[in-house]
Nucleic acid binder design. Structure first.
Lengths: 199, 199
DNA sequence: AGAAAAAATCGACTGCGGTCGGTTATTTTA
DNA sequence: TAAAATAACCGACCGCAGTCGATTTTTTCT
């Protein structure tokens, strides 16, 4: 069993994350100070920094957890025999909806994950690998069913779809594509990628 | 002619940008304080903030200028009768090489441009439009030459290629794809997008 | 159990991004 | 050209992210 110390650490970490979600959602990320967060969590300011290296890491940790959870949910529900485009739409729109509902979190997270200051750590890659682990079987099955070319690497196929997802996220953040147009844009672009741009 | 005041403003702005390039390149963006920058530029700290709203805006202004310049150079050199893939490679690899040589600047700029905090301003869109203005003729010509489907909107075509560019930038920043593999990856993925992922 | 070691907590402190009201330089007016 | 008006400049100041050494809590050793 785990010691008092380990139990407390887990509880404190949870408490910091819960308080962060509450305050960041209420007042925004930049508008919430670490001192405020510490007060809400009932601990000292310094303690927060023994759980997270930076303020942004708090968001990162929270989002990684959420993604992990969301994906396991999706994996359970997914049906490998529906058309590829349907499965992809379900997965990527789920991710997308999450971002639209947590714009502030999403932005900080994307900054850290997509254009990180330092190359990603082992742990960061873990999250990415879990992501591939979820998608690869889907693409592989689609190859078997003749929906995808068999001469392409799964990594590249994943890349194409992910690239479109990134693009639409950016278009949404810049205000170029409004929320309600995203599903249609995503379906159109994924379909076009499958069909090819050349005649 | 312009007044003393206007001339000085232009000179001061230039001076701030030059000092910023020097110091940010030398010591990094975060490691350079605004006070240091002001000292290097020979002006007061407050003055910087009457030219730029935030520290990151300095990078943004610089990069916008550079992009503008780089694109006009490219437009002059480009040959509309070479194969589409060749033209795209020249344009996007030029952008990419610029980023690899100014990693720090690129990262700050991408954060601001790709996942901005607020929807982009009129001026931000201008930079984007200039970008489209450069690419649209290329895609249009490719449609005429039968290299691209004619039933697709130029906006979508642009989007597909740009999406791949974004993806590779991200893969480079995360350390997933090393610099030397980028050209090959870019060519492969653009080609695949043209051909389509489906059999 | 009691002492010693190790780990976790804390808040005063540091440095920096950004602000603001006072000062200086330029332009306009009379 | 002198005075009034306006724009640019400045640096002391504020609030916050992140640090660090002192203090408290838990674990380990004897």
């Amino acid at each position: 069993m785990s010691s008092i110390r380990e139990q407390n650490k887990i509880k404190t970490r949870r408490c910091i994350l819960d308080s962060a979600v509450k305050l960041f959602s209420q007042k925004g990320f930049e508008q919430t100070s670490i001192e405020e967060l510490a007060r809400e969590a009932g601990i000292g300011k310094g303690t927060i920094y023994s759980y997270f290296e930076t303020k942004r890491d708090i968001v990162k940790a929270f989002c990684d957890d959420q993604l992990d959870f969301a994906r396991s949910e999706l994996a359970a529900k997914s049906n490998p025999d529906t058309p590829l485009i349907e499965q992809l739409m379900i997965i990527f729109m789920a991710d997308f909806n999450y971002v639209t509902e947590h714009k502030e979190f999403g932005r900080v997270y994307l900054h850290e994950k997509i254009f990180p200051k330092e190359p990603l750590t082992e742990e960061d890659f873990q999250v990415q690998n879990d992501y591939f682990d979820m998608l690869y079987p889907i693409y592989q099955r689609a190859q078997e069913l003749g929906e995808l070319r068999q001469d392409l690497e799964l990594l590249h196929i994943s890349g194409h779809v992910y690239a479109i997802y990134l693009l639409l996220l950016s278009c949404w953040y810049t205000g170029m594509v409004p929320t309600e147009n995203i599903p249609e844009a995503m379906e159109t672009m994924i379909t076009q990628t499958l069909e090819g741009l050349a005649p």
